[in-house]
Design a protein around this nucleic acid. Structure first.
Lengths: 353, 353
DNA sequence: TTGTAGGCGTTATCAG
DNA sequence: CTGATAACGCCTACAA
């Protein structure tokens, strides 16, 4: 900084790079400072935390910034501060419609609060998920994990470094957004009982799925209350195809009503059953979970226990952003309600014959 | 750098900040340099472009890096280079399943090539889209625009700053990935003609949609070839709801077969028609576009002209990444095929009565 | 209220 | 092949 560089002239030492704003390269606070006739640091102050600078210089600077079409360089800003105005969202499966609304909810909230959303998927794998999370850690201010598959401990480890919010799972010491299954499930089971069913089957989801365990618990409890038999069946994967595959187990179980871990399974199951000549809901009632996109495309349309997925996404984002801004409980759990959406795939059991 | 700092001890001058790697804060190339006994710049070289450093120092450095659990700071790296290893994807509507596969395709390719995907949505609005694009420009190396709604000129302007790839639209001077509608459409129309239809309706999508225009052209051409009448109807929005709303126009048109701009419209239309007692496909055949998730959930399942959406997403990402790495034509258009997926919603027209 | 100066972690350009 | 050293653009004590 000792040699006096000629300011406005092109690089003195043969360095033919971008110097005087040659059209392309972006304006910096130095350029603004020059135009406004103030010091770069004043520009920085004026632009980052308004109020710490006199009204007239403020305007001067803002005008200059506008004129030069200035935009902060997020990287330069992130370097000293460590803040990036970005957060990550990791979902188990991008093509699973369950996550569509979560993604949208998070994205909307992010944009609203001037944050950028970075998306990654774990392909239902705990290790991929962990890898993705680690990868993101470097570039984001916080992380949202939707239906995470990794260990509680891994999650907590990550949460020690950066704020983390978990959706669809409860992890001690980490803020979570979880649908409370009870209301929706008891509505569903009561409806089934009222329609003459005595034995219901629950088709479980992935073994690592926290949510699947909760739902099975809920079903058991509700069935006990309504004095129904409840049996649990396993699925190979939580997809339409998995639903088709579990059809024979369902028939073998002797249950006249079945709740599945998610809507995808329910839809696949219904397709397979119908293909085999089983009439839904006359011979068997089917109830899904989530109320995903397309749940009402089927014939009959699917009865399902709805989780407010969009709300989960935006709620998680809000929680996270509040955390980042020092507001809010660092470990509050947000519970959202579930409700039964009664459509045509469940109903009165018709006497055999 | 003149005062000899005691290396491993806590800050000497009362500055109680992070100095000696106090567990938390991340290791830097300086720390590695210290451990490996080399200069930081050598560390940088070894870690960024292997090969420009002797084998033994290389190993020395790598070991030190591993020991310190070193990770580059992307921001520090981005500052001098301008490269971020990140690209943006802007979609018209996150909850429209058309984009699910595109997103997934892009995300998969990104992760595979060690890039990060940043997602934004334009809510079908040209201005929101432009805003989102500008916002991203600062943080990404390139941009993918899926079904963009903004002007060709705006797109080209953006493309002057950073590499841009467009999906589902053709813009002069910008690399694009577009499904070629002709094959799929002519298959569809021929099938309709063979089934006794004489008049088909096309329900158009958003006015700004380039794809909608192409599909209408394709339908007209194919109908002319097959000597069918073709009429065009407008929709309010390209959603299930929009499909329901257009039902009365469809009936009024007198067409016995209808192609809709997308599957969402087709599904809504079918629902509304069926609710009014119209039998599909006996009285009216319905054909959608895209073959989105859920297109086969309906009864009858939807006949549709499939676009390989996932391929579009990954193709666009590949194109973009090649561009960023200096490979590939800067303006090549990638064409992907469409095909008819014949399901139950289209078929032989039954004589009235 | 505003200017000064040093640093954030890397890369790149020079010498050696 | 390796070591200095100057950017990169911005933030932030500290001083004026």
């Amino acid at each position: 900084m000792t040699e006096p560089k000629t300011p406005d002239v092109a690089a003195p030492t043969g360095l033919v790079k971008k110097n005087a704003r040659d059209g392309k390269s972006n304006a910096t606070i130095y350029d603004i400072a020059k135009v406004a006739g103030v010091n770069p640091s004043t520009v920085s102050r004026a632009l980052s935390k308004p109020g710490r600078v006199s009204a007239k210089t403020q305007k001067l600077i803002e005008d200059a910034a506008a004129e030069l079409n200035y935009h902060v360089n997020p990287f330069a800003r992130a370097l000293p501060t460590g803040r990036t105005n970005t957060f990550g969202l990791i979902v188990a499966d991008i093509t699973n419609p369950t996550f569509f609304d979560i993604i949208r909810g998070a994205e909307t909230t992010a944009t609203l609060r001037d944050y950028t959303l970075v998306l990654a998927e774990s392909a239902e794998s705990a290790v991929t998920e962990l890898t993705a999370a680690r990868r993101m850690m470097a570039t984001v201010d916080g992380l949202i994990l939707a239906s995470p598959r990794m260990d509680d401990d891994d999650i907590r480890t990550i949460a020690r470094d950066k704020p983390v919010v978990v959706i669809n799972r409860e992890v001690d010491g980490v803020p979570c957004v979880v649908p409370d299954v009870n209301k929706g499930i008891s509505e569903a089971v009561r409806s089934l009982a009222a329609n003459g069913h005595h034995k219901v089957a629950f088709v479980a989801g992935p073994a690592q799925s926290w949510m699947s365990a909760r739902r099975w618990e809920g079903v058991q409890a509700a069935c006990e209350w309504s004095r129904l038999d409840a049996v649990r069946l396993e699925s190979t994967k939580p997809t339409v195809d998995g639903g088709r595959q579990v059809a024979r187990d369902v028939r073998a179980s002797g249950a006249t009503a079945v709740l599945t871990y998610n809507d995808l399974l329910a839809i696949g199951l219904m397709q397979e059953l119908q293909a085999a000549g089983v009439v839904v809901p006359d011979q068997i009632s089917i109830v899904g979970f989530d109320d995903i996109f397309g749940a009402d495309f089927t014939t009959p349309p699917l009865t399902t226990v709805r989780s407010p997925l969009g709300e989960c996404g935006s709620g998680a984002a809000t929680l996270l952003l509040d955390l980042l801004h020092g507001a809010g409980e660092p470990t509050a759990t947000l519970r959202v309600e579930t409700e039964l959406v009664l459509r045509g795939s469940s109903g009165r059991l018709l006497p055999a014959g």
